[in-house]
């Protein structure tokens, strides 16, 4: 398998605080990687650096073997790496379908499709298909700020996928969502992701959720990766259990290894 994303010695400091320390990550095409770690462990900092929102203090980021260091988020998006957000980043006063339509027009070009009306029948049909995929059709014409949290998170992820990225970074897709909703939400997302064949890296606090969907886990602790490997090996790691999970993790919860 070939590498899609690689970081070399990626480091970021905020004053005296080291939010990311010499991160060497290598992710292959088609992997579904989970990232765990307590608050402030450097997970979001990692995503922010990789997607161009936060300039690293040192190191390099290679996407498809080309450095994306110094590129803006829009340029990295155009190269095929998209992300979702811990707090859904939407256009709150526009309707859900308008959010999708704008994502579509952005992905299309933008020129010359920019000059044609946004809401053409073809584009609308496309947008409706996307909403259908994510199961948010009931909220199609609702103003986004009035839509429940779970649906907002789904719209947020849908918008990231509109550009047909080859890699998707999900920053706590189930945060702010009730416990019962977490699994259905992730099922929906993963179904779409598998359909598109996207490589996924996702940050999650709920260990059971992580273990359920990923093939590999990276554990962050105070800016460093302290364990990286199969869910079973990482979650069974004593150091991870002590520093990240905070208690003994019962591996039986994972079911049979795949």
């Amino acid at each position: 398998m070939s590498t899609i994303l690689e970081t070399r010695g990626l480091t970021r400091t905020f004053g005296a605080v080291v939010a990311a320390k010499d991160l060497n990550v290598r992710i292959d095409h088609g992997e579904i990687v989970g990232v765990i770690g307590s608050n402030g462990a450097g997970k979001t900092t990692f995503i922010n650096m990789v997607t161009g929102y936060l300039p690293p203090s040192g190191g390099d980021i290679l996407f498809d073997s080309r450095s994306v260091l110094g590129l803006a988020p829009r340029e990295i998006t155009r190269r095929g790496m998209a992300r979702s957000f811990q707090v859904a980043q939407l256009f709150p006063q526009l309707t859900v379908i308008e959010n999708a339509l704008i994502s579509l027009v952005a992905a299309e070009g933008p020129w010359p499709s920019f000059l044609r009306p946004l809401d053409t029948p073809e584009r609308r049909a496309h947008a409706e298909a996307i909403l259908e995929d994510f199961g948010v059709t009931p909220y199609r014409d609702a103003v986004t700020s009035t839509v429940p949290q779970g649906a907002r998170k789904l719209v947020d992820i849908a918008m990231a996928l509109v550009s047909n990225p080859r890699m998707l970074l999900l920053d706590e897709p189930t945060s702010g969502v009730s416990v019962e909703e977490k699994c259905p939400l992730m099922d929906t997302v993963m179904a779409v992701v598998r359909k598109h064949g996207v490589t996924v890296l996702f940050v999650e606090h709920d260990m059971e959720i992580v273990a359920r969907y990923v093939t590999r886990i990276m554990a962050f602790y105070s800016g460093e990766i302290i364990a990286d490997g199969s869910p079973r090996s990482v979650l069974g790691d004593a150091k991870v259990q002590e520093l990240v999970i905070g208690h003994h993790f019962d591996l039986d919860l994972l079911g049979e290894p795949a």
């Binding site: 998006t77 256009f91 006063q93 704008i102 933008p110 499709s113 044609r116 009306p117 946004l118």
Partner: peptide
């Protein structure tokens, strides 16, 4: 009502997202 005109509203609403849309 064009793509460009509507994206202006999107910029008003959330610039970071517009950037991440490319």
């Amino acid at each position: 009502k064009s793509g460009l005109g509507r994206v202006m509203e999107a910029i008003r609403e959330n610039e970071i997202r517009v950037d991440y849309l490319g």
